[in-house]
């Protein structure tokens, strides 16, 4: 088995493992080493050919392999680069690389609306996490951001194109999980956008998984009962007999009310099993489910941290100040 060393920490991994997967294995082996795991905004283990687009997962290969020890000339996307025996990789130990990653994060944010205060994804948004951990002190972008009107794609999904980072995950879901993709990326360059064919509804059994794989709040659940901040809700693991999917989901509860149903996400923010649209959209009734117990959130995220850093983050991003009374209220609730 090839041996790879990431930020000085060695691990043996099966042939064909990518650098990102190897880093995650290191993180799973010992939580204290989780910092070596590069952030990944477009790669998704369960989606073939995903990854390579966002460039947040770049690392430096300082030694190619035992056979060919030359370093790789440019940073590589760790999610799409297989390890070689004897490879040495620098991630957090290389200031130049961290600077390059900051650049990538800045690029991802220049056209992002930073509307976290009104975004359904706030609290479970990977871009929020990313900018918090790798962001710059202030955005240097002073031009108008590109804007799109939000659109409903069918009864169940809403698209806020403004927030999309073009990770292609939802396109891969549609390609690989549904029969006949009806949405995709149109246009080119920085006016690319996610579009259905003339706002045609995306409707088939598994299409709701697009919501779960979306790293930002671009695709959200229109049936999410009332817009409630995720950290006000109480997630529980639950399952039900389902003919289409494994029926293993997370119910987001408020009291006994099921506000939302999603797949179960692992510590890397990826769902363990994709769930079907019936489970996701049509079973908003606690009686339809067998509750297993509270969802353990193991992710290094804003929810996991137990205190929400929105205010700080907003300052960091030099964005318009969020609605102050709203924040005050939230703090009060959180502190209880």
């Amino acid at each position: 088995m090839p041996k790879v060393t990431i930020d000085g920490i060695p691990i043996e991994v099966p042939e064909g493992t990518t650098i990102l997967q190897a880093a995650r294995m290191i993180g799973e082996r010992d939580k204290a080493h989780r910092h070596v795991v590069p952030p990944a905004m477009c790669y998704y283990t369960k989606l073939e050919t995903s990854g390579g687009y966002c460039r947040t997962c770049i690392v430096k290969v300082t030694k190619g392999s035992d056979k060919d020890p030359r370093p790789m000339p440019k940073p590589v996307a760790s999610c799409r680069t297989a390890v070689m025996d004897g490879m040495e990789v620098a991630n957090t130990t290389d200031p130049e690389l961290l600077e390059a990653r900051k650049g990538v994060v800045e690029f991802l944010l220049i056209n992002h609306p930073l509307d976290c205060p009104v975004c359904d994804q706030a609290g479970e948004c990977h871009l929020q996490d990313l900018s918090y951990e790798n962001g710059k002190a202030a955005s240097r972008y002073e031009f108008e951001r590109r804007t799109f009107e939000p659109v409903d794609i069918g009864d169940s999904i809403k698209l806020h194109m403004n927030r999309c980072i073009l990770c292609y995950r939802c396109v891969k879901v549609a390609d690989q999980l549904t029969d006949g993709r009806v949405h995709g990326v149109i246009n080119r360059g920085d006016v690319s956008e996610i579009s259905t064919y003339i706002s045609q509804a995306v409707e088939n059994d598994m299409s709701g998984n697009m919501i779960d794989v979306c790293p930002v709040g671009a695709l959200t659940d229109r049936t999410f009962r009332f817009s409630s901040r995720v950290w006000f809700t109480n997630p529980v693991d639950a399952h039900r007999e389902c003919g289409t999917c494994a029926g293993k989901a997370v119910l987001w509860l408020k009291g006994n009310e099921v506000l939302r149903v999603t797949g179960r996400k692992d510590q890397w923010g990826e769902v363990e099993d994709f769930i079907c649209n019936t489970c996701r959209f049509d079973k908003k009734d606690l009686n339809a489910w067998k509750v297993e117990g509270p969802r353990k959130i193991d992710r290094h995220s804003v929810i996991g941290q137990g205190h929400y850093m929105l205010q700080r983050k907003q300052q960091l991003l030099n964005a318009p100040a969020p609605n102050v009374p709203e924040i005050a209220k939230r703090k009060e609730l959180k502190d209880r």
């Binding site: 993709r181 009806v182 995709g184 149109i186 246009n187 080119r188 579009s195 259905t196 064919y197 003339i198």
Partner: peptide, 25 residues
């Protein structure tokens, strides 16, 4: 036009979005 692109999708047996993705690129 949308109809022209739909006709192309029909000739080639493609999903309409596949045509649209390409035409707009």
């Amino acid at each position: 036009s949308v109809n022209a692109m739909d006709a192309v999708a029909g000739v080639l047996g493609l999903q309409r979005i596949e045509v649209y993705e390409v035409a707009s690129f």
